[in-house]
Amino acid sequence: MAITDKIYIKNHQQLVSQIETSFPKSAFSGATLDILFQGEGLAKLDDATQDRVLDFAEDFLDCDCQANPHCGCAEEKFVRYLLELREQGLGPDAIVDVMGDDYMLYAYPGDVLSFLDNSVRTLEAVETLADVEGHHDAAKQAQRLRGNLVR
């Protein structure tokens, strides 16, 4: 299961009552993206919530794909966001706090830790395979990226 399947809307019930429409808690669910980011749903939110939702849309949903927001670009950008927070030295608890402050989202710190651990293991595998195949520049890049995540 992808980390983006484990990212949830903070104050979900409050948003449901503001919009007067039920939608999933999962931030990257198709129904959630449709309801929150298209027209009437967004207009019904209070100003503070609307600002956070618009920040999320601007940072993650801005792509030129015809299938936007269901193209996968948002999930890819969000994964990059999580990795960048880790590269800044934040641990799982702090990452959860930042995403809550930035976008009114939450995740369980254990899920974030598991995602980060899997990312490190994947980079280790890339590094090993690149070395075996003689792609030493790719191996060095994977090693550098892994080092940014484990410090």
Rank of each mutant, 00 (worst) to 15 (best):
A31L: 10
G30Q: 12
I7P: 01
F23K: 02
K10W: 11
F23H: 04
A31R: 07
A27S: 10
A31N: 09
D34C: 11
I7V: 15
S22I: 09
Q18P: 02
L15F: 10
F37I: 09
K6L: 12
I7W: 00
K10Y: 11
V16W: 00
F37H: 14
S29G: 03
Q13H: 13
I7A: 04
D34S: 12
T32C: 06
I7M: 06
D5M: 08
T21S: 05
S26N: 06
D5Q: 13
S26A: 06
Q13G: 06
L15K: 11
F23G: 00
K10F: 11
I7H: 02
F28I: 07
D5I: 05
Q38H: 05
P24R: 05
V16L: 03
T4S: 10
T32R: 03
A31E: 14
F37D: 01
Q18M: 15
I9V: 15
Q13E: 15
N11V: 08
A27W: 06
T4N: 14
T32I: 07
S26F: 04
D5E: 12
I35C: 01
S29C: 03
T4Y: 13
P24K: 06
F37P: 00
D34R: 11
L33M: 14
I7C: 07
A27T: 06
K6S: 07
D34P: 00
I35M: 04
T4L: 05
S17Q: 13
T32L: 08
K10R: 15
A27N: 04
P24D: 09
F37Y: 13
L36K: 02
L15I: 09
D5H: 11
P24M: 06
S22H: 10
I35W: 03
G39P: 01
L36G: 01
Q13Y: 09
T4C: 13
Q14G: 06
F23S: 01
Q13N: 10
I9M: 09
D5C: 12
H12L: 14
K10A: 15
Q38F: 08
K25G: 07
T21K: 05
I7Q: 03
T32H: 03
I19Y: 04
L36D: 01
G30P: 00
I19S: 04
G30W: 08
K10N: 13
K10T: 12
Q38P: 01
L33G: 00
V16D: 02
F28C: 04
S29F: 04
S29A: 14
E20Y: 01
S22A: 08
G39R: 10
F23C: 03
H12I: 15
D34H: 10
F37W: 06
D34K: 13
G39W: 12
I19M: 04
T21W: 04
K6R: 15
A31G: 03
Q14N: 11
F37S: 00
